[in-house]
Write a protein that binds this DNA or RNA. Structure first.
Length: 374
DNA sequence: GCCCGGCGGTGATTTACGTCA
DNA sequence: GGTGACGTAAATCACCGCCGG
């Protein structure tokens, strides 16, 4: 009998680096299913489907107070709230702001206004007051929510000296993609006094975005717009937040996978080493004992649920190897115990640990190997 | 207690690429 | 098939709070 176990060459498998050389390209995230998933948004936005038009519309709404209270298409019947209820908007938020200017002029006047106090007091989160009033229709549930959520603007931390590259996006052109083209246009503020406040999302805003991210990793234009409205952010900010969140979630997942693969590799290396040793012993036994072939055949079976490998002998009543007069404890123990040492990650992509917001669950409640694993 | 440098978190930008009309 | 719009990933920058010395 020849045990055809080969888990790879120990010399090569002992080098986990090969697994991780292309760390950034190996792991695929779970975004695909997000795209396919029909999200449970119930929104009635009376705006065009084009994202650009949507954003342009909202920008127009924000910049145009004349439409206040007249837009009947905007009642956002929005079922955007996450499953986990968000904390109520704080009612005791400090009403004093860091920024100096509280009118809309600071937003448009901040660009290229280096050295002026108004530029320093710019609030990148702040929507014009018209934007708030415009959605404060009593007919809209979301509007009432937003009235409360508008308080979040007060707790947004606007701290420090800003990124010069933010200047154009924080300026009058704050709603649409065209800001990309002129991104460095304001870098010509030579005196360095063109200081912007870097946005810092409040905890409530971050929590809301997190909950939304748990629901869906990508946003369609309507979702983005709705989130921006609810959080009093610009759609671009919501978009950027989701981009960064996806990237950093993927990075974290990659790190988790890397560690997991590393452990798998180590375990497999040990197992391979042990099996090689066992094989050598069996071969030695074979050469020294002609009755070696009478050993029962060993089969390895893998539980489809937990992917653990257990070995069984085809002849349950076979006499122990010790009957041959040679102590082969490693062989016997290896073939009669559930092999926890073999990692569950043989098809590791299906069972690898997941970084938040993913969860690792055993979908089979009838699975019976849990106690054995412990 | 204050200052300073390192570090991590995070918002924002740029670039490249894929998809679609 | 070429092209532009659009969305996203990846890389990167830069600000800022925290922490230890």
């Amino acid at each position: 009998m020849e045990l055809g176990l080969s888990l790879g060459d120990a010399n090569t498998s002992s080098s986990p680096k090969s697994f991780f050389l292309s760390k950034k390209k190996v792991i695929s995230t779970c975004n695909d299913h997000e795209k396919k998933k029909n999200l449970g948004f119930c929104m009635a936005l009376g705006i065009n489907s084009s994202s650009e038009r949507v954003e342009q519309d909202i920008e127009d709404e924000e910049n145009n107070t004349s439409e206040e209270g007249t837009n009947n298409t905007l009642p956002v019947q929005l079922d955007l709230l996450p499953l986990v209820p968000l904390p109520n908007p704080p009612t005791n938020l400090p009403q004093s702001h860091h920024w100096s200017s509280d009118n809309g002029s600071s937003e448009n006047g901040s660009s290229g206004n280096g050295g002026l106090p108004a530029a320093r007091g710019f609030d990148v989160n702040r929507l014009p007051a018209a934007g708030m009033d415009e959605v404060s229709s009593p007919n809209s549930v979301a509007s009432s929510f937003r009235m409360d959520f508008g308080l979040f603007k007060s707790c947004v931390n606007i701290v420090g000296v800003g990124n010069k590259r933010n200047s154009e996006s924080a300026g009058g052109n704050d709603g649409g993609e065209p800001e990309r083209a002129s991104s460095r246009a304001s870098d010509d503020d030579e005196n360095g006094a063109n200081t912007r406040k870097k946005l810092r999302l409040s905890k409530e805003q971050s929590a809301y975005l997190e909950e939304s991210f748990k629901e869906h990793h990508t946003l369609n234009p309507k979702q983005k717009l709705a989130l921006a409205k609810q959080l009093s952010l610009r759609p671009r900010q919501v978009e950027v937040w989701f981009q960064n969140r996806r990237a950093r979630t993927k990075l974290k997942q990659t790190e988790v996978d890397c560690e997991y693969l590393k452990r798998c590799c180590e375990t497999l290396t040990d197992e391979n080493r042990r099996l090689h040793k066992e094989l050598q012993e069996l071969r030695a036994l074979k050469t020294s004992n002609p009755f070696y072939m009478q050993l029962p055949a060993t089969t390895l079976t893998m539980c489809p649920s937990c992917e653990r490998v257990a070995s069984t002998t085809s002849a349950a009543t076979a006499p122990p190897i010790t009957a041959l007069g040679t102590t082969t404890t490693t062989a016997t123990t290896a073939t009669t115990t559930t092999s926890d040492s073999i990692p569950k990650a043989i098809p590791f992509l299906n069972s690898r640990p997941r970084f938040f917001p993913f969860t690792t669950t055993n979908n089979n409640p009838n699975h019976s190997h849990q106690s054995a694993a412990s």
